[in-house]
Amino acid sequence: MVPLLIFGFGIGCVYALVGAGFSLVFKTTGIVNFAQGSFVTLGALGAYAVLAEGVPYAIAVLAGVGLAVAGGLILWYVVLTPLIMRDAPGYAPNIATLVYLAVVTDLMLLWQGANPNLLPVWAPQTQFHVLGANVSIMYLYVVLAAAVLLGGLGIVLRATRLGIGMRACAVDRETSQLLGLSPRLLGGMAMGLMAGIGGVGGVLIGSLQYAAYDSGVTFGLYGFVAAVAGGFGSLPGAVIAGVLLGILQELLARYVSSDFSDAFALILLLCILVVRPGGLMGARIRFMSR
């Protein structure tokens, strides 16, 4: 039971990182970035590929995260900015991010092949004993790293000019523009920042689970689920929902059915969504009001 909770917590932290990315990018830009999960792949596989060239671990990690950030910036400036400029109709920007995810996935397949890779562990690989079970200490590191990242993000949002600008944008894009904040710049910052955080998530999870060219799809899905279940746009909501989702998946896989664990987790979330359309943390959405 306890190891399960710890595994779940570790995976859940990565969902939380991706979910936070969905939330922050949506709040700042108004776009649901379905490609958020691709940053996890870019981080993990980028680090792996560079490491394979024989460079030191720290530099490989930086390269992976850098690749994720580059992926985020390209998405923002090359794909989304032109669409927003042209008042693209309906859901075009959101669908563009979905196709961008497919492009990144194809690119990873071409570059790294279909075989999943595992990053070597980046810290002394010790086991610790919890209630008679061995747990890799890596999980603890992952949780700690995620906590530090999310805490840091919270501080950035509260205390820096950039963060305050993003929050202002989140509250009212039009007014913040009149106040001299550039939505383009802030959107790029938010996207780059959250791509970087997603990349770190990839590096973290990359040494616990095999990462393949299409891992980003799964992490994107669960991150999205976490973001929505937590009340779309709510950062703490996304984090809590992400962690809960990770734990829930592990428990379902162990105690109900490992084959159906994904389906059960998803259906349970569907039910939550139908009963509480505003998400777990969100206020109850007023009936039919915008």
């Binding site: 649901v32 929505v228 779309f232």
Partner: peptide
Amino acid sequence: GYYLAMATFTLAIAV
């Protein structure tokens, strides 16, 4: 909106 998008996406993956 996004809640419907997520719910239908979830449905597709669950199936």
